[in-house]
């Protein structure tokens, strides 16, 4: 299974072990874990709520992973995105990639995260002392996603 959307937590070590299984030719495993921070511009974060678009979110993540596979030589990819209510320090998202060499594994992992942040239908509501507010897309995330235009696209 490549993509999971779930409320339950995940075990990074177990996921990486599973990703390596059957790929003795993998020289590189790269992983990214996104966490709930305890502080934002609005102050101390009490919790966050993550919503998604059932049906489209799975497809969007699958399309992003497919694009990563087109651009880089990958032996495996694992993406897990949690939804529901999460508290500070909890894990939100895992993106892990396996490849023969680290260049492709690093690039693909970063690419998947940058595209997830700007095109996968998930929404985050932050609860602080000031109340609840829905976050918007960050300009810096849009810039990061744009960087990948034209990179490795013609492989």
């Amino acid at each position: 299974m490549t993509i999971s959307i779930q409320t339950s937590d995940f075990d990074v070590a177990a996921e990486l072990a599973a990703l390596r299984t059957g790929h003795a030719e993998a020289g590189a495993l790269v992983s990214f874990v996104g966490l709930v921070r305890d502080f934002s511009e609005a102050g101390r974060v009490e919790n966050i709520f993550l919503e998604h678009y059932p049906g489209m979110s799975e497809k969007a993540l699958a399309n992003i992973v497919a694009e990563a596979n087109r651009r880089w030589q990958l032996l495996g990819v694992r993406v897990i995105h949690r939804v529901g209510e999460l508290r500070p320090a909890e894990q939100i998202v895992l993106v892990a990639t396996a490849s023969a060499h680290r260049g492709d594994a690093f690039a693909a992992c970063e690419f998947i995260m940058d595209y997830l942040k700007t095109s996968a239908p998930f929404w985050k509501k932050e609860q602080t002392a000031q109340g609840g507010h829905w976050l918007g897309t960050k300009e810096s995330d849009i810039e990061r996603a744009r960087r990948w235009d034209g990179q490795g696209e013609n492989r």
Binding site: H52, A120, F122, W123, L135, G136
Partner: peptide, 10 residues
């Protein structure tokens, strides 16, 4: 058709 605020996952 889905209508939503800007995407903010991850």
């Amino acid at each position: 058709v889905a209508i939503f605020s800007p995407i903010s996952g991850g």
